[in-house]
């Protein structure tokens, strides 16, 4: 079987590849500000594989959480019960985030543009929105105050746009030295990990450039799923395939999580499986693999 054929029959999904690629970028000594959804999955996968001592911080105030299952919300009991300490929310944002203690902030969103600005607020005009998204939450300050941020988002032409409808979280603005001109001293979005590829900002212009393709993904697929004329680095790297250990750890974690979240019937309602199908765009900070904008009309 040729490499291409092997990859086409890859025994992993693009969502799994995205989580694994993101997890690999984290280091054992990182202090991570973790968002719910894909960021939480990637951070916990890193902790359960190559980075056992990584510090995971959730904005509910839990510092050093080690959850056995992924939290559904940012403040699930599992986080507080396994954390080294739990602080108040004003303390979390003032001392720990604004105080400069976080090495990596993980963000997602509904839209991302070529200078890695993120929209998680509205589609359409702010006062008469076509879609009202959940909003920024912790993201506007995470984007500015973590030493660097990684963005994890499923890539489609409508989520990766030339210009976002609304800048909830500032990336590189209009490019170049825009961050510095606003007095922001942190590095900003140094990596964007999608289900197709890895992007990094050009050192000078700060426009996102594809630096690695995931196995089995073509340049054409990336071009089709990007709303601006995307550039590729030369030479272009290829993400290495998931290992058996990465895949089994990821799947065990997701199985435990799905079982835990479905436990206990709620007031006669039949709980659904983990939300794969419902209005993903609404999730704002929770990037989904399917086209987030396709379902909103």
């Amino acid at each position: 079987m040729s490499d291409v054929a092997a990859e086409r029959a890859a025994p992993w999904s693009s969502a799994e590849m995205m989580a694994i690629a993101a997890a690999r970028l984290l280091r054992n000594d990182d202090v991570c500000f973790v968002g719910i959804g894909a960021p939480s999955l990637a951070c916990n996968l890193a902790r359960l594989t190559h980075a056992p001592d990584i510090t995971l911080i959730y904005e509910s105030g839990t510092v050093g959480a080690r959850p056995d299952v992924l939290p559904l919300s940012i403040g699930d009991p599992e986080l507080c019960e396994t954390a080294r300490t739990t602080v108040s929310v004003p303390e979390m944002f003032a001392y720990w985030l604004q105080g400069g203690r976080i090495s990596v902030g993980f963000l997602g969103g509904a839209q991302l543009d070529r200078f890695a600005n993120i929209n998680s607020s509205v589609i359409g005009p702010y006062d008469t929105p076509k879609v009202r998204l959940p909003g920024g939450g912790g993201a506007p300050e995470i984007a500015a105050l973590c030493r660097q941020t990684y963005v994890v988002m499923a890539q489609t032409r409508r989520s990766f746009v030339k210009r976002v409808d609304f800048v909830t979280s500032f990336g590189f603005g209009e490019g170049g030295d825009h961050r510095q001109r606003l007095g922001i001293t942190t590095a900003g979005p140094t990596l964007v990990i999608t289900d197709l590829c890895v992007m990094r900002p050009d050192p000078t212009t700060k426009e996102l450039v594809v630096t690695a393709l995931h196995p089995g993904v073509t340049r054409e697929q990336v071009i089709e799923n990007t709303g601006w004329p995307i550039r590729f680095a030369d030479p272009l790297d290829k993400t290495s395939s998931p290992t058996t250990d990465e895949l089994s750890t990821l799947r065990d974690l997701q199985r435990r999580t799905n079982e835990a979240h479905a436990r206990g019937l709620a007031r006669g309602q039949t709980p659904r499986a983990q939300p794969e199908g419902s209005d993903p765009l609404d999730r704002g900070q929770i990037p989904q693999v399917s086209d987030p904008l396709a379902r909103t009309t």
């Binding site: 959804g37 919300s73 009202r132 939450g137 939300p275 209005d279 993903p280 999730r283 900070q285």
Partner: peptide
């Protein structure tokens, strides 16, 4: 008056 208006981990309100 709010700062994040979603159903956590699920979707929209």
């Amino acid at each position: 008056v709010f700062s994040w208006g979603g159903n956590p981990g699920v979707g929209s309100l």
